[in-house]
Simulated scan of single mutants.
Amino acid sequence: MQRRFICFAVALVLVPALAGQGAAADRANGRRIAERWCAGCHVVSPGQSRGSDQVPTFAEIGSAERLDEGALRAFLADPTHSRMPPLSLTRSEIADVVAYIQGQRP
Protein backbone atom coordinates (compact mmCIF):
# COMPACT_ATOMS: atom_id res chain seq x y z
CA MET A 1 0.00 0.00 0.00
CA GLN A 2 2.77 2.43 0.94
CA ARG A 3 4.63 1.53 -2.24
CA ARG A 4 1.60 2.50 -4.35
CA PHE A 5 1.36 5.81 -2.54
CA ILE A 6 5.03 6.55 -3.23
CA CYS A 7 4.64 5.69 -6.94
CA PHE A 8 1.53 7.86 -7.14
CA ALA A 9 3.30 10.78 -5.43
CA VAL A 10 6.29 10.51 -7.79
CA ALA A 11 3.97 10.44 -10.81
CA LEU A 12 2.14 13.54 -9.58
CA VAL A 13 5.44 15.41 -9.47
CA LEU A 14 7.08 14.10 -12.63
CA VAL A 15 4.23 14.04 -15.15
CA PRO A 16 3.48 17.79 -15.04
CA ALA A 17 7.19 18.62 -15.12
CA LEU A 18 7.78 16.45 -18.17
CA ALA A 19 4.66 17.74 -19.93
CA GLY A 20 5.81 21.32 -19.41
CA GLN A 21 9.20 20.59 -20.94
CA GLY A 22 7.64 19.13 -24.06
CA ALA A 23 5.36 22.11 -24.51
CA ALA A 24 8.11 24.75 -24.37
CA ALA A 25 8.52 26.71 -27.57
CA ASP A 26 11.85 26.59 -29.38
CA ARG A 27 12.95 30.11 -30.33
CA ALA A 28 15.89 28.83 -32.36
CA ASN A 29 13.53 26.74 -34.48
CA GLY A 30 11.21 29.76 -34.75
CA ARG A 31 14.12 31.76 -36.13
CA ARG A 32 14.91 29.04 -38.70
CA ILE A 33 11.29 28.95 -39.82
CA ALA A 34 11.14 32.76 -40.01
CA GLU A 35 14.35 32.98 -42.01
CA ARG A 36 13.07 30.36 -44.44
CA TRP A 37 9.45 31.46 -44.88
CA CYS A 38 9.15 35.06 -43.70
CA ALA A 39 12.42 36.87 -44.50
CA GLY A 40 11.46 37.48 -48.12
CA CYS A 41 9.03 40.16 -46.93
CA HIS A 42 9.62 40.77 -43.21
CA VAL A 43 12.82 41.79 -41.48
CA VAL A 44 12.97 38.86 -39.09
CA SER A 45 16.27 39.44 -37.31
CA PRO A 46 18.38 42.41 -36.26
CA GLY A 47 21.13 41.52 -38.75
CA GLN A 48 18.84 41.34 -41.78
CA SER A 49 19.31 44.29 -44.10
CA ARG A 50 16.51 43.73 -46.63
CA GLY A 51 12.77 43.34 -46.39
CA SER A 52 9.66 45.00 -47.73
CA ASP A 53 8.84 48.42 -46.35
CA GLN A 54 5.16 47.50 -46.80
CA VAL A 55 5.11 44.99 -43.93
CA PRO A 56 6.12 45.29 -40.27
CA THR A 57 9.36 43.90 -38.96
CA PHE A 58 9.26 41.08 -36.43
CA ALA A 59 10.46 43.59 -33.80
CA GLU A 60 7.46 45.81 -34.59
CA ILE A 61 5.09 42.85 -34.50
CA GLY A 62 6.54 41.64 -31.20
CA SER A 63 6.14 45.11 -29.69
CA ALA A 64 2.53 45.61 -30.77
CA GLU A 65 0.36 45.43 -27.65
CA ARG A 66 -2.65 44.09 -29.56
CA LEU A 67 -0.62 41.17 -30.91
CA ASP A 68 -0.26 39.04 -27.82
CA GLU A 69 0.60 35.36 -27.95
CA GLY A 70 -2.98 34.27 -28.60
CA ALA A 71 -3.51 36.76 -31.42
CA LEU A 72 -0.25 35.78 -33.10
CA ARG A 73 -1.06 32.07 -32.82
CA ALA A 74 -4.53 32.59 -34.31
CA PHE A 75 -3.15 34.72 -37.14
CA LEU A 76 -0.42 32.25 -38.06
CA ALA A 77 -2.87 29.36 -37.91
CA ASP A 78 -5.05 31.04 -40.57
CA PRO A 79 -3.22 33.78 -42.48
CA THR A 80 -5.53 33.52 -45.50
CA HIS A 81 -7.22 36.80 -44.63
CA SER A 82 -4.04 38.76 -45.31
CA ARG A 83 -1.57 39.30 -48.11
CA MET A 84 0.63 36.56 -46.67
CA PRO A 85 1.02 33.35 -48.62
CA PRO A 86 -0.84 30.41 -47.11
CA LEU A 87 1.44 28.76 -44.58
CA SER A 88 0.97 25.24 -43.38
CA LEU A 89 2.63 25.33 -39.98
CA THR A 90 2.05 22.81 -37.22
CA ARG A 91 0.94 24.04 -33.80
CA SER A 92 4.45 23.40 -32.53
CA GLU A 93 5.98 25.44 -35.36
CA ILE A 94 3.51 28.25 -34.73
CA ALA A 95 4.49 28.25 -31.04
CA ASP A 96 8.16 28.41 -32.05
CA VAL A 97 7.62 31.34 -34.45
CA VAL A 98 5.50 33.21 -31.88
CA ALA A 99 8.20 32.74 -29.24
CA TYR A 100 10.80 34.03 -31.69
CA ILE A 101 8.66 37.06 -32.65
CA GLN A 102 8.04 37.92 -29.01
CA GLY A 103 11.78 37.65 -28.38
CA GLN A 104 12.45 40.34 -31.00
CA ARG A 105 11.05 43.16 -28.89
CA PRO A 106 13.49 46.07 -28.84
Rank of each mutant, 00 (worst) to 15 (best):
D53L: 11
S63G: 15
A77Y: 01
S63I: 03
G103H: 08
D78P: 00
R50S: 11
R73A: 08
I33L: 09
I101G: 10
L89I: 09
R73K: 13
G40K: 11
G47L: 07
I94R: 02
G62N: 10
R105F: 01
I33Q: 05
W37P: 00
V13Q: 04
Q48E: 12
S92A: 14
S92C: 04
A74F: 10
A9Y: 05
E60A: 06
V98S: 00
G103W: 07
P79G: 06
F58V: 02
H42M: 02
A59N: 13
Q104I: 07
G30V: 01
S63R: 13
L89N: 03
V43R: 15
I94M: 01
E93A: 06
Q21G: 13
M1I: 03
G40D: 14
L87P: 02
R105Q: 14
V98F: 03
I61N: 00
R50D: 12
A28N: 11
P85C: 02
V44D: 00
E35V: 15
A71Q: 10
E93Q: 08
P16F: 14
F58W: 15
S88A: 04
R27I: 13
Q48L: 03
Q48T: 03
A74M: 08
S82P: 05
R32W: 14
R91T: 10
P86T: 09
L67F: 12
V97M: 06
S92F: 09
R27W: 13
G103N: 11
V10K: 12
P85F: 04
D96Q: 06
V97K: 03
D96Y: 06
I6H: 03
S52A: 11
G103K: 09
Q104D: 05
T57W: 06
S63K: 13
A25N: 07
M84F: 00
A71P: 02
A11I: 07
V55S: 06
N29I: 12
A19W: 12
P56L: 01
S45V: 15
H81T: 05
E69Y: 13
P86I: 04
Q48I: 08
A71R: 12
W37K: 04
V55E: 01
G62W: 03
T57Q: 11
P46Q: 07
